[in-house]
């Protein structure tokens, strides 16, 4: 299996993604966005960074790179797409996932460890966990506040597409445990079921 890690100008976590995949025994290659998506890509990662300097909005410029048409088409055909950090912002700007990421409630760049509660373990992305597990991960973002209108949010919840919510160390989903003001403490979602978590 080969995973394509898409590099945009300003991506800076692409090597980390390749290393992480290598560590779990998955073949991965970095793909410059202007070179197009390899036909044999079994999975796609949109890595973190600051593509195009976050001009206009984080992810807005990269979302309009021609390779994103190919990524959307691959996702629709069932190819798994993972958006990490800036990659998640690119994913929402390119409509792979609903909603948008915008300025943190604090108006500051935040770099800290947070707790997440696993909301849905029945996906390839979360299969190693059990629902309700609490995991600790670092965040580093200025525009991580997940915004979505009420109707679309209800739809996400009804479709069981929320993967993780920010919580405290005991798994309680509270406003105090929400680092950036994200709607419903949502920290990770599936775009279309089983294709594109961000």
């Amino acid at each position: 299996m080969t995973v394509a890690v898409v590099q945009f100008g300003g991506s800076n976590c692409d090597r980390d993604a390749v290393r992480a995949l290598d560590r779990v025994g998955v073949d991965a290659e970095r793909v410059w966005h202007e070179d197009g998506l390899p036909a044999d890509a079994d999975g796609i990662i949109l890595p973190g960074g600051f593509s195009y300097g976050d001009y206009l909005r984080a992810g807005a410029m990269a979302a309009h790179s021609p390779i994103m048409d190919a990524v959307r088409a691959a996702a629709e055909d069932g190819t798994p797409v993972l958006g990490v950090c800036n990659g998640a912002q690119i994913g929402s700007e390119s409509r792979l996932t609903p909603g948008a990421f915008t300025t943190n409630r604090s108006a500051r760049f935040q770099c800290e460890d947070v707790f997440l509660r696993v909301e849905n373990a029945d996906t390839p992305w979360t299969a190693a966990y059990d629902e309700g597990d609490v995991i600790e991960l670092p965040i580093a973002h200025g525009e991580g506040r997940f915004e979505i209108d009420d109707a679309a949010y209800e739809q996400l919840v009804d479709d069981d597409r929320v993967l993780f919510r920010y919580c405290d160390a005991d798994g309680n989903v509270t406003d105090a445990a929400n680092p950036n003001g994200s709607k419903g403490n949502v920290a990770g979602i599936l775009g279309s079921p089983r294709t594109s978590p961000c």
Partner: peptide, 9 residues
Amino acid sequence: ERLLANPTL
């Protein structure tokens, strides 16, 4: 529509 604004926000 296509770039300058994000309809969600």
